[in-house]
Structure formats: C-alpha cells, structure tokens
Simulated scan of single mutants.
Amino acid sequence: MDRIYANPSMAVVALWISATTSEERPIRVIRRAPDRITEFGAACFVSDTTMVDVRVHDLPDPRPGDLIVIGADSFTIQGEPLRDRERLIWSLELRPS
C-alpha cells in the first residue's frame, strides 16, 4: 500500500484542515470521480461526485466539514467518512468549497 500511495501516477499530495481545531497536515490521496445514479420517481439522474481515498494511518479521524485542499482546489468532506473492510483506508466524499 505504501508503494501505491507513493506513486505519483496513483496518488497526489493534499492538505487536510480540521473544521473544529486549527490542526492541519499534509496527506496523500487517491482521487476518484465516479458517477452517482439517483432515482426520483420514474426518472434517473446521473451526477458527478468527487471522492478521495486516504490511509487511516495518515488521517486517523476525518470528520464532515473538514477541508481537503488538492493543488488549487478546496473541498469539504460531505457525509460520514467510510473505512474499507480491513480498516486501512478512508473513503471520503467531497464537495467543492
């Protein structure tokens, strides 16, 4: 896993900023942009999403409202962070800030 997150083709450097304290730290994230299908009555809507995967080791306690800055783009964590089955990776849904 260290090799994947160290690979510049897979992961990028980001900055995590806490919404409740003045704490911030650099992290490495794998950025994803899956489509989300939402059903409303008989209609289906496809919308873009922004997700990042970050190691629990690098970011032990992300919370909704925290900021993730990737390059010049700022995002807010939306919804509850979810861990994978092995409890090694957080999946964070982001919205533009």
Rank of each mutant, 00 (worst) to 15 (best):
T20N: 09
S22G: 15
A72T: 14
A6T: 05
R32T: 13
V13K: 06
I37S: 05
G65T: 04
D84K: 01
R3A: 09
V29H: 03
A6G: 08
D61T: 06
L92I: 05
W90S: 07
L59S: 01
V54N: 06
I30G: 04
A19V: 00
A14E: 02
I27L: 04
I89K: 06
C44A: 09
N7T: 02
Y5A: 03
I77T: 07
R32A: 13
W90Q: 06
G65E: 05
E93Y: 11
V52K: 06
I37G: 00
D35I: 08
R95S: 12
W90A: 10
D58E: 10
L92S: 09
L94R: 03
A42W: 05
I89G: 09
V12R: 12
R3M: 09
L94C: 04
E86A: 12
V12A: 07
T50I: 10
A33K: 14
A19Q: 13
I4W: 07
R63K: 10
L15R: 15
P26W: 09
V69W: 02
T50V: 15
L92W: 11
T76S: 11
F45V: 08
T20V: 06
R83D: 07
E39R: 14
E23L: 07
S47P: 01
V13I: 05
I89T: 15
W16E: 00
E86M: 08
S47N: 14
D53Y: 07
T50C: 15
E24A: 10
D35Y: 08
V29D: 02
M10D: 05
D35Q: 14
F40N: 12
R28M: 03
V54I: 02
N7F: 07
T38S: 15
I68D: 02
S47F: 02
C44T: 13
I30T: 09
W16L: 04
A43W: 07
V46Q: 15
E23T: 11
D58V: 08
I27D: 11
R87T: 05
L15N: 12
F75N: 01
H57F: 10
S91D: 11
M51T: 06
F40D: 13
T38F: 10
I68Y: 01
L67R: 15
N7H: 13
A19Y: 00
S74F: 04
D61Q: 12
C44Y: 15
T21F: 00
T50E: 14
G41H: 08
P62Y: 04
T20E: 10
I4N: 06
A19H: 09
Q78D: 14
P34A: 12
M51Q: 14
Q78Y: 07
S22F: 04
G71F: 06
D53H: 11
I4F: 10
A6E: 07
